[in-house]
Design a binder for these strands. Structure first.
Lengths: 341, 341
DNA sequence: CTGAAAGCGCTTACAG
DNA sequence: CTGAAAGCGCTTACAG
């Protein structure tokens, strides 16, 4: 049987209330008694029982806010499933989620969604947002108020966020090059279709990719780099033009959304057989293209786990005062091909 | 606030004890009152609070037994880490693990290890064992005693095990062929090195592999099939002979342990460059060979998760009487290459 | 500065 | 067949 507050109180000859004050640093305990209890806690190897804490804490339930740019972005579907799974598991422990979904990456939209959540009295926040000063400032002021923040999928600089949970973008770019190295249809004439050159994650995927191509001594040439703006229509138009201009291209490296738009060009022009296509993430349209042998491999990042772990981390921090051990939790870089998708 | 036993009792005009009797089917309640309470439970949407259950159940702690053939088998290291992680998380809920490790696959050794666990008064069991009648009988008698059993990593037939948690062997074999299809150095002359032709999982890896090679229309020929007996020394000896005999082999497909032994032959004879090697699992020696570019890809099966989920499933079943929704929980088929291992 | 009591939701003897 | 009471480990007013 593990040590309890009751046992400590008996050993110290005080009441359980006093032991509780020391354990939780509520103050108002004489120095001698405080010392005595602290020593006992260590000697008797006391750790608070989570079930007891939960039950006592049921009177003041905890609401965790989540802000995601998930409208019209199927990538977030699995993130949300992960959030909800965590909510289900923690429901009996008094936890509920307040999920705020926005469309696009306008900082002002994100800020007002975040402020709305705070107004709804959340006691922790997880966000997937843009890393710009205006957003950083808002988050820092929230953190100052005692609301811990976890960044999902896209990290934040210059903030005291508790931790990041998401993709290792550089590694995922390297892995794409590793796959290409196995396939090896040299010389490679590569068209890079990125989401936005302003997105750090997308750039890391490009840099990791190129670095590994070089390290491996692969014969390649980057025909061009275009931006899809994470939009299938833009992606289609620009890929169409680019493939007309660079007609030697035999490899598409698509770092973000816009996969279906780019692949439509390839299919319409019947270029599947001579084109090696590498993409990221597993949204329904991408999955279909993998199953149709249009895309050779898509590299994924465990979105479900990103949602699930974020909530668990915030809960553990708030209730068990367990700070995360790492400042960045990278989910696995997962290679999916037709057979294991 | 969620509905509680107290609320139901008040609504029914009875004591909490009576409500508890109905909820847990302990009997001894008059039919009319039982009906009334059952209706109330549905109408008021009652679900038992786990924290309350846990606290009340702390007086009778729960011991879960685990039997693994893990001695001298590094594959199980991560399975055990997963078991221990679950134990840590459930420690405050009164759960402890009794892990029994054995060496090899002798049914009698497994049976006596299992019986020892039962003698230690475990209330649930997870096992990774051999699927033979003698073992099945022992497990069925244990299950009859009310001890639920989960099979890890290797499934059991003819038993009432609660569920299986482990690899999808057929899919992992297909995935190996999918990788080979991307690499395509036809014509392929393949040497299959399997663990044992008596192991269902190993055979499924072979069958899935060959089926997919055929479906893809890949030009291949199986030079031979040898058994490593999951042992590096045996693997080395037999691979050495086989490569001497079939000197056209340009691909090694290794379905189980014995990877390091087989690869030693390749390295000693400097065949790395002309040999495509596909393996399974991520043990230290395999990982090293992937990083050294000897192995092209190794296909993994989330061993940590296998351990972790097995315990969670047994716990949920025992405490929350939540039967698993599926009879087989397949962990993901994970492709690891140098860049993402 | 400290203690006694009540309560979170559930279960377990015990009494009738 | 049913109820009242005590208890699991912790926290929260309240009284002194």
């Amino acid at each position: 049987m593990a040590t309890t507050i009751k046992a400590i109180a008996a050993a110290a000859g005080v009441s359980r209330g006093t032991v509780d004050r020391v354990i939780n640093g509520r103050g108002g305990v004489s120095p001698e008694i405080e010392e005595k209890i602290k020593k006992l806690i260590i000697d008797m190897n006391y750790t608070p029982n989570r079930a007891g804490k939960v039950l006592a804490g049921l009177k003041k339930p905890m609401k965790i806010g989540c802000m995601l740019p998930s409208i019209d972005n199927p990538f977030y579907d699995d993130v949300i499933l992960g959030l909800k799974q965590a909510e289900r598991e923690l429901h009996d422990f008094g936890v509920s989620l307040e999920i705020s979904q926005v469309k696009g990456f306008n900082p002002n939209d994100h800020i007002s969604a975040i402020n709305d959540l705070v107004a709804k009295n959340i006691s922790a926040l997880c966000v997937s947002t843009v890393d710009v000063p205006a957003v950083q400032d808002v988050l820092n002021s929230i953190i100052q108020k005692g609301i811990p923040v976890v960044s999902i999928n896209s990290d934040l600089s210059h903030t005291n966020r508790l931790c990041y949970v998401g993709c290792n973008y550089t590694e995922s770019g390297k892995t794409a090059a590793g796959i290409l190295n196995l396939i090896r249809k040299e010389p490679l004439e590569i068209l890079i279709i990125t989401g936005s050159l302003n997105m750090q994650g997308h750039n890391q995927r490009i840099n990791g990719f190129i670095k590994t191509l070089q390290d491996k001594g692969i014969k390649y040439h980057i025909a061009g780099v275009i931006e899809s703006m994470d939009d299938d229509h833009t992606s289609y138009i620009r890929t169409f033009s680019a493939l007309k201009k660079y007609n030697q291209v035999n490899c598409l490296y698509i770092t973000a959304a816009g996969v279906a738009g780019a692949c439509r060009v390839v299919e319409e022009q019947k270029l599947q057989d001579q084109m090696t296509i590498l993409t990221f993430d597993d949204v329904p349209s991408t999955r279909e293209l993998v199953l149709k042998n249009v895309i050779e491999a898509t590299i994924c990042q465990e979105p479900f786990k990103q949602g699930y772990e974020s909530i668990k981390i915030l809960y553990d921090y708030s209730v068990n005062s367990a700070a995360p051990k790492k400042s960045r939790y990278f989910t696995d870089t997962v290679i999916k091909i037709k057979e294991n998708i």
